[in-house]
Amino acid sequence: MSETIRILVCIKQVPDPEAPASSFRIHSETKTITAEGVPPVINPYDESALELAVRLKEANPDVRLSAVAFGAKLARAVLMKSLAVGADELYLIEDPSVEADGMITAHILAAAARKIGFDLILAGRQAADTNAGGVGLALAGLLDIPAVSWARKIELEEKLLRVERVVPEGCEILAGTLPALVTVSHEAGALRMPNIINVRKAKTKPTHSWTLADLEIGKLPGRSVELTRLEAPKRERHCQVIEGESPAETGAGLSRKLVQDGVLNLRS
């Protein structure tokens, strides 16, 4: 029997980025945002990371797959989707004593990763809420393991890792050894839908709830990123609507107007 390969996927709970803009309320005084009537989701990039992890597990029965989430007000039902699609266990880290930024989050995840154990860590390239993209690579630095960003495909053979990495002109295929961390880009594809049997099965899989006291964490760094203002973007423009008797006339009218106003230049 060969050795178990431990894969850890970091998942973040975020407000659903696909929710209609009208469901979001921005509270400028408290600098917070709420999505009304829309349940949170697992960050879509992290879902892509989870999808790659599940594929690795399918290709390699020796993989043990753990999902780990850190955050406030974690919705167990939402994060248990990771178990329903194939993770073996789920770690939920919540602690009201800490108001984290990306670097603090990376420190907490590093402590969790050390405690859980890992050969390969996967994370989304960024989170859909803050859109920052710092935690994964910082986590690798803290654990002192090499990292690749923006993977769309990962293959594992023993402890050799082969990563297809998205670059503007196409992709790079990289080879390296474990342990390592890989951040996953949306090109990897969306997470599969769990089927009803596996949703039921997920409830029997272990879910561990931790606070910072459960981690050997030492001293956390101070918060370095401060949100000073949160507002709605101003995008309103005055729209000149081109009308026509028929769609064809509308189209012709639009073309004429755009050329007339110099918006489109057909000479170049």
Partner: peptide
């Protein structure tokens, strides 16, 4: 832009 462009955030860094 944060929250998928729904909001505009201003940050400062204190390190």
């Amino acid at each position: 832009a944060v929250y998928g462009g729904v909001a505009l955030a201003t940050y400062s860094l204190n390190s």
